[in-house]
Each structure stands twice: as structure tokens, then as C-alpha cells.
Design a protein around this nucleic acid. Sequence first.
DNA 1: GTCGGCTTGTACAACGTTGGAAACGGGGAC
DNA 2: GTCCCCGTTTCCAACGTTGTACAAGCCGAC
Lengths: 341, 341
Amino acid sequence: MRVSLKDVAEHAGVSVKTVSNVVNKYQHVTPATRHKVQQAIDVLGYRPNPTARHLRKGRTGILALAVPELGNPYFAELAGAVVDAAAEHDYTVLLDHTQGRRDRELLVAQGFRTRVIDGLILNPLELEAEDLAARTDEVPLVLIGERRYDLPYDHIAIDNVAAARTAVRHLLDIGRRRIAFVGARRDRPSRPAHLRLLGWQTELAASGLAADDALVGRVEGWERADGAAAMAALLDSGQRPDAVFAYNDLVAIGAMRLLAERGLRVPQDVAVVGFDDLTEGRYGMVSLTTVAPDKRAIARLAVESVVLRIGGGAGAPEGPRQLRPGFRLLERESTLGRPDG
Amino acid sequence: MRVSLKDVAEHAGVSVKTVSNVVNKYQHVTPATRHKVQQAIDVLGYRPNPTARHLRKGRTGILALAVPELGNPYFAELAGAVVDAAAEHDYTVLLDHTQGRRDRELLVAQGFRTRVIDGLILNPLELEAEDLAARTDEVPLVLIGERRYDLPYDHIAIDNVAAARTAVRHLLDIGRRRIAFVGARRDRPSRPAHLRLLGWQTELAASGLAADDALVGRVEGWERADGAAAMAALLDSGQRPDAVFAYNDLVAIGAMRLLAERGLRVPQDVAVVGFDDLTEGRYGMVSLTTVAPDKRAIARLAVESVVLRIGGGAGAPEGPRQLRPGFRLLERESTLGRPDG
DNA sequence: GTCGGCTTGTACAACGTTGGAAACGGGGAC
DNA sequence: GTCCCCGTTTCCAACGTTGTACAAGCCGAC
């Protein structure tokens, strides 16, 4: 059976509280008592029961991270970084994936697993502002990811518009002029890919180029298959872009695969830039130029934010904060050199 | 403040236990009382406190899954499947990654987070049998992954030897004869990749071919970069294989990347088979033939096994079980057709 | 009308821990 | 020798829940 404080106390001939004091390194315990208790602990192999401790203290030491899809390498890599960052604060991470479905995101936000967790880091895709506004659960929440809500929650995300502009700027710099954006949502044009689409439009406009809607490839999701499908549709519509800025690396990889099937060379015929810096992008037949968000910084800031809010708010910043970790453009083979012909 | 059973009881004018009975759908409660209590619950927005419940019941409803690296898509996809399988049994999953380091694996096995979790699913890489034999923690443990230990724990893994033989058989069937194995460990020849290496040897021997040690590419790890490095070393040593069977898809992808850099065509010059069926493998410039372990089955069996053991053993099988989920060979472009020349 | 049996609800204790107040005991000051 | 103080330890209650034992109420049967 399990060993409890009581067992140790009996074995050492002291009270339960004294054992608790030793375990918790309470100052006023005589060396003799401490030693006696410590020995009993060692002999019996006592280990504190976190559940009871948590009940008493009202905290569990567990953070939840909810991302759309663990099978997506971006979120997997991010999750790994969050686990590490949480460990630095003595927190453990409970992972959930919502499959980007609004009902599941809602369930998570509403505290489906409330009270097992001390705080929640959520990356919503489909969740609406009103869903979040109606949230009643008191567990501290911080948001990550591209979607922005005007709500009293900290939000951690890179400056997506600036990052997208950097990517498009790079394509312009290497002489491309018919730059497609692949990865806008088909159904709701203004949803998630919004900011990167805006960055694309803005940078083109800043260079005096029109952001032609015919050069926008629309998708159902942001997996590799979606990128391939959108690229196919774009080519089939008669467009002949000399560059593609993709919503993310997966979409870019799908698009590159399709370009190859159609006999178009990357980068000679079509340069490609992705977003996320997946390790995968480095090892394709043509390595992928990409915008690399600082994932470790995102994870660190998210964990720090939520941990700050957990203390009951003592020392926590007043209003919601917008935190903007950095990003870099990593130039690789997919944008090497000026266009052929 | 938080609402507890007591608050609901006062509001409804009944005892705490009656509220508990309603919450737990205990049969013998009159509709009138039930309704009254339910209304109080709704008004106050009561939600049970799992921590207290768990303290009382001795279970937490949390399973831990420890894999080497979440950034590795295979483990990420597997983790996703485990989360889903656990949800079917009303369990939540706590994720940990050990980075394949023995000390971290040991920490996890020893119950680093004991008692927050009801059961542990562990995929060890470096852990030794004696480490596990010395385990004192009573939390039920099941093992997944390629390593086999002769210990009283359930083990879930596909038949790696048979799977490897299937892959090699396929390469033989399409006319390849100089088949390399890429992904044996450099430092300890008999460690993890062991079984797949054995399958390679066995199938070659069964066809009357020698398993030439010069055709074994050795690695430090099993990432894409390791595959590329091992492939480079193999070619630099003067070998000219007409096929590669890689330890896993990541190694295969790294190897393919290097083959392309050296001007060798896949599959015409070198056919390649991987292992894991990563989505990534489908979207390279040349899609990758691979051995696809049934990840959902692995996840399901692992969760079922550990859940069985949690009940205190009632109804649980006596001894340790070896469970062998299935696998399939998925033929794609990287092994299309007979060799050129 | 009384009894037995069943249904419904209550009281109490317990899970293992920790905060706070009270009790204890030893040592120094007078 | 007595008193007081302070450091140390113990006692009690509480966190929120549920299992067990039992009391109360109701019904029909004899």
C-alpha cells in the first residue's frame, strides 16, 4: 500500500504535521527531529501525494495546451517547446488537440477539464470572439496563434503582417512579379489566414503592384494536400505565377509537389516561400525558404504569461497584453536566384 | 469564488450527499428532489472539483505518455492517436518527452510525476532492462516501441523483423540486389535498430544474398540529418547500392535528399523504402514507399492495456502480454519500377 | 392497526495534506 | 525559585468529495 504522512509519523514517533514540516523544509525543526523523520521517510519510501496537496492548496501544477492538431509538425514542435518551458516553472503540461473544430475549442475554453489544470494555453482556429466573451471558467487563459480577439486575454503571436511582408519583399527582391498567395480560406475569406494575406497585399501595394485576387489560392485546410489542391486550381485557372507565398510550410510543400508534377521547376520557374520553419522543409528535394517564428520564445512567453496570471493576479499586469516574439526569414533553395526566361 | 457541493446543498435545502447523489446519477432520488437540486446546480453554476474527487477515489483520470521527441512526426502522430484513444476511456493525457536520454527516461519510469497519473505509457530508447527492473513505482506501466525487455510489463509493438523483411522483400521483388540498410546505431550495434537490421539480414539470407556489413549505414540518431550523413558516408566509402531500406522515414528522407545532391535518381538509380508512414513522406518530390505501422491500433492497445491494469488488476490478464498490432507496406514512387541500366 | 420491507434522504467519517492556533518545554532574567 | 519568552511540536480544522451506516417515511399485507 501507499505510504502516507501518517505512516511516517507513526514510524518516527512524531505528529503528522511535523513530518509535513520536514517535507516542506519548514525552518523551525530541530536537526534531531528532522533526521529522525528523514530516516523514517527513507525507510518507508514515502512520496507526497500531489492530489491531496493540490486539494489543500488549490493548485495542481498542471498547465493545459490545446492546439488544433498534433500531427501538424508546427504544433508538435511548439508543444515540445511548451513542455520544456513549463518544466522550468515546475509545471507539467496536459495536451489536447481540437482538430480545429469550433465545438472542441469551445469545450476546452469552457473548462472541459477545469480544475485539474491551473492554466490554459489555447491556439484557436475557429473559435469566435463571442464564444470567448461568454467564457465563465475562471482558469487563467492565454491565447496563441494568428487569430486576434479584442478580449481581455494575453495574446502571444509574431507580427504576422510584418512577417508576411518580409516574405513577399524577398520574392520581389529576387525579381519576381507575379506572386501568388496560397492558403486563404475558401469559405470565410477574412478568417485565419487573414493577416498573412493582408501582408501580401500591403507589400505588393507598397511596390506599386496590384494584389490580383486571381492569384489567391484558396484552401479548405492547411495541410499538404490543401496546398497541392489550391496550386492545381490556380494553374488550371490559367494563372502562371513566378512565385508563391504560402500560408505555411505544409501548404508550400503541397504546392511544390504539385508544381513538380506539372513540370514546373522550383525555383527557376516558380520561387516558393513558406511559413513556420518546419524541419521537414529543409529536407525536401528543394529546401524551402520560410519565415521562421521563434517557437521557443512563443512557448516561453505563453508559459510565463499564464503562470503570472495563476498567482491570483498578484504582480500580474493589469490589462491584457499583446506579446510579439520575433521571426526570421530563412533563405533556402526554393528562392535561389532570379527567374529563368 | 468557487461553488462547492455545500453551496448547492444550502441553496437547495438538502444535504451535501444528496447533491452528490444527483451529480453522480444515483438511482434512488425522487424526481422532485432531483429537479430541485438540478436547478440549484444550474443557478449557481456548480462544477465538480476533480481534485477532491480523485483524492477520495484514489484515481486521477490522467494517463501519461512519454515519447522520445514530440518534434518527430511519428511520435507526434502517435501522441495524437493516444489522446484520442484515451478520451474514449475518459482519460486525459499528460505528455512528456525524454529526448531519448536515459536519465530522463529513468525519471519518468521512476514516477517523477507519480500519483498525478493513473498509468504510464512509455516509449524507451536508451533505458536498460536493469533500470526498469529496479523500478519501485506502483503506477501501471506499459511499454511501446521497438525495444524489447524481458520484464513483467505489457509491450505493444509491431513485429519489426517481419515488417523489415516485407520491405526488403519488396525491394528484391523489383529487381534490386545491392540493398543497403541505413540507420543502425554507430555506438552500440545491437541497440534500437536491432530488429529491423535483423529483418534485413534475414530476408537477404533467405534469398541467398549476403548481408554485407559494408552496406550498413550507421547513424548517431534517427533524424533527417542523420540519414543524409549516413548516406554520404556510405557513398564515400565506394559503395553503390541500388536500393536503401531506411530505419525510418526521416532517415529515408535525409538519404533521398543526399542522393539527389549526388545526382542519383530515386527510384531509377536507387530505390528507397522507409518506415513509419509519415504524412511528410507522401509529399516529397518523390513520394516515399514505407512500412506503415497501424498507429491507431498501437495507441488503442496501449491505452487499453494500461487501463486494464489500473483497476487494481481485477480482470487484468495474469502475466505480461506481447501485443502485435499490424502493419502494411505502402508502395509509392520511391520504389517504382525496375532499376535503370 | 401493526409489522416488514423498500425507498429516500441524512450524518459521519475518511481520502492525504497543510495553515493556524494552542500547548509544551527549556533557558535566561530577576 | 519563579516567571516569562521563544523556539519547537502538536492538535484541530479544512480543502471537496463519496462510501457506509442509519434514520425517516411510505407502502401494502396480514
